[in-house]
């Protein structure tokens, strides 16, 4: 009993004075997932975290905090103590918040722990669409302006970036853009014929393609994907896409800026190692995601490049609310 009281008392003292970094973690860590349960970010984070917990020797309690395209979770973590006990588990969207007018903050208020993996975009169509590849689709759109329905997931979503990319490379695209609240519902609608074409992440559509419920038009990458070797890369239709590709959404773990370096390092090691766990890599590979497991300066550089490329692409396509310039985001190559 005495030991118990002593321990409880020391726990109280520890809580008050802030734990030392070499002991980190001395209490459970909160992982705030930016998206809802069952979504791809949720799935990825819930499958990598148990491995990271093992390496870290601590507990990470995962919580979904949804709303306002992930901005609620981002603000919550940014406002919590920079002690490494609150992690943000997010995707690429926050890098577009500023130009989309969705918020004042993005990942620049955070230190990346690990950028876990990157996805590849793919253009898929309803099986009954009157075209079978990218070139055929472009011809059909040119002949039938304003008839083809593209799925979208709101400004700044993957489909809007891909559509912006097509417009930058090929010129104006006269299609109807039907908004859905996520690629899951949009791909469902695609199979039901409510939309004709959907730019989606390969992982979300791969099973549908394998089953023949939707047909792939082109992979948005510089080369064909191992998972779908028969689907041509979009660069084989138009080389100008090389300017923008490879591009893709990503998943990453972040802590608020100002977190002690050794804590970040401990976390980074844990998550990077966890991302290399064969169970996890196999899982990600089966869905066409490429493991990155980068952190530190490399991750910072990746984020900067991604933000520059994507915000200016959207800006040039006229899809932004604010210019990237307003936030000091330089045009790529400048």
């Amino acid at each position: 009993m005495k030991r118990f009281i002593l321990g409880a008392a020391s726990a109280l003292v520890l809580g008050a004075s802030g734990a030392l970094a070499q002991d980190y973690p001395t209490k459970e860590i909160q992982g705030i997932i930016q998206w809802g349960a069952g979504g791809s970010t949720d799935t990825v984070m819930r499958s990598v975290t148990p491995h990271a917990e093992e390496i870290l020797g601590g507990t990470v309690v995962l919580q979904n905090m949804t709303g306002a395209v992930g901005a609620i979770a981002l603000n919550h973590v940014a406002d919590s103590a920079a002690d490494g006990y609150t992690l943000l588990m997010g995707a690429e969207n926050p890098l577009l918040y500023k130009v989309m007018g969705l918020g004042e903050r993005d990942y620049s208020a955070f230190t990346p722990v690990s950028i876990l993996a990157r996805g590849t975009p793919i253009l898929v169509a309803n099986t009954e669409a009157p075209f079978d590849d990218y070139a055929g689709m472009m011809d059909y759109i040119a002949e039938n302006p304003g008839e083809v329905r593209f799925g979208a997931t709101g400004p700044g979503g993957l489909p809007s970036v891909i559509t912006g990319m097509i417009e930058s490379v090929e010129g104006g695209l006269d299609v109807i853009s039907v908004p859905y609240d996520g690629d899951g519902p949009a791909l469902t609608a695609l199979q039901g014929g409510a939309i004709d074409v959907m730019p989606a992440v390969l992982g979300a559509s791969i099973e549908g393609i394998r089953a023949g419920n939707m047909k792939p038009l082109a992979v948005f990458d510089t080369q064909a994907n191992d998972k779908l070797p028969d689907v041509p890369a979009v660069t084989s239709f138009n080389e100008d896409y090389n300017t923008y590709l490879p591009w893709g959404p990503f998943f990453g773990v972040f802590v608020p800026e100002g977190t002690p370096e050794d804590v970040v390092e401990k976390l980074s090691n844990a998550y990077n190692e966890a991302a290399q766990n064969p169970e996890f890599t196999e899982l990600m590979d089966s869905r066409g995601y490429s493991i990155m497991a980068i952190s530190g300066d490399e991750a910072e550089q990746f984020l900067t490049d991604w933000q520059q490329g994507t915000t200016w692409l959207l800006q040039d396509a006229g899809l932004t609310k604010n210019s990237p310039e307003d936030f000091g985001i330089a045009r790529p190559g400048e």
């Binding site: 409880a8 020391s10 726990a11 109280l12 809580g15 209490k27 459970e28």
Partner: peptide
């Protein structure tokens, strides 16, 4: 300090 107590 719930989290510390729980860890304890």
């Amino acid at each position: 300090p719930e989290a510390e107590l729980l860890q304890f």
